[in-house]
């Protein structure tokens, strides 16, 4: 019974995180200015990282944890690089 509840709550959590990714993507498409799009990208990468963790619980494999860690790292590096580009027009000075 509780196992069934866990299966369904995994499904619901995946749907909710998918909707959150959709919100980030919509902000990337709608964003009136460039900084809104960068913020949408940051949100999207964090939500994708959480979705990878959820998929890892669902399949029971530890491999997804490493993918989630890499996604978090690349999301941070990408956001900082894009913000630096907005600030100066160059990424590396």
């Amino acid at each position: 019974m509780s196992q069934l509840m866990l299966t369904y709550s995994l499904l619901v959590a995946q749907v909710l995180l998918g909707l959150a990714i959709g919100c980030g993507a919509l902000r990337i498409f709608l964003g009136p200015r460039a900084q809104d799009r960068v913020l949408g990208f940051d949100t999207l990468s964090v939500n994708a990282m959480l979705l990878l963790l959820t998929v890892g619980i669902r399949t029971g494999e530890a491999l997804y944890f490493e993918a989630a860690l890499a996604t978090a790292l690349f999301g941070f590096v990408g956001t900082v690089a894009l913000a630096k580009f907005l600030l100066r027009g160059e990424v590396i000075e």
Binding site: L6, S9, L16, L17, A20, C23
Partner: peptide, 29 residues
């Protein structure tokens, strides 16, 4: 193979985390 208390705890944590994340992303929108 999971005992019931662990399944319930995992489910509650998962749903809370996903719901909070969705609320934050809706705020972004």
């Amino acid at each position: 193979h999971l005992p019931p208390w662990a399944a319930v705890l995992t489910a509650v944590f998962l749903l809370t985390g996903a719901a909070v994340t969705l609320i934050g992303s809706l705020g972004l929108l």
